[in-house]
Design a protein around this nucleic acid. Sequence first.
DNA 1: GTTGAGCGTT
Length: 254
Amino acid sequence: MSHFGRTGPPDIKDTFSLLVLNVTFRTTADDLFPLFDKYGKVVDVFIPRDRRTGDSRGFAFVRYKYQDEAQKAVEKLDGRVVDGREIMVRFAKYGPNAERIDKGRILEPVHRTGGRSRSRSPRSRHRDHYRDKDSKRRSRSRSGGRYDRDRYRGRDKDYRQRSRSRSPDYHKARGRGKYDEERRSLSRSHGSASPVRRSPSPRRSPSPRRTTPSRDASPDGRNRKERSPTPKSVSPRGRRAVSRSPLPRSDADD
DNA sequence: GTTGAGCGTT
């Protein structure tokens, strides 16, 4: 989705991609195009948007035709207040195909591991309802901060992040570490590749999946009929469990 | 309606 109506990346061989961060969620490519076009020949302006909601993800990519113009735009537009928010303009670090890009020039392909595989879109807990591939963001040390501007920009934020990731990380690391070792030991003891759903109780499993005491308490057909017109009270999971999931071996076996 | 570290599309 380019600003020029073309589909997909036009050409990245002779273009220099700039990454624009900290842009507002309502800022569109049309708003950034004239701003960046004033400092050079903008080939394309692309703003990654959410596949589901379609909202801006808070950053954009601006492709310049020449590096010098791109550099000029970075120096001029970086820190510019757009729509009431200070944007951050810098050269794209990775290309659309996960290639490492230096000042817009493709250096070499980067491995998927540790590349763009990181979580993406953990913007808010409210949007966690989508709970797609995104799991949680990891504290990645921002390589930025080379500029004097970054100091006061991430001063308060930096303090919050470090203070937050320090304490919980310490306790979490210990707790997970110990349990993790024990769990792995047990897992290896079984030798099974699926150490999941392994209850510590070999018999009489709690079986939380089949929780329909109402049905047993009222096996009467009359009562059952009353529950039919009220499917909103019953969950589809429980209904399916009592409908099609004959697993009597779970209690007897193992 | 909400949010804010980061690197991208038919």
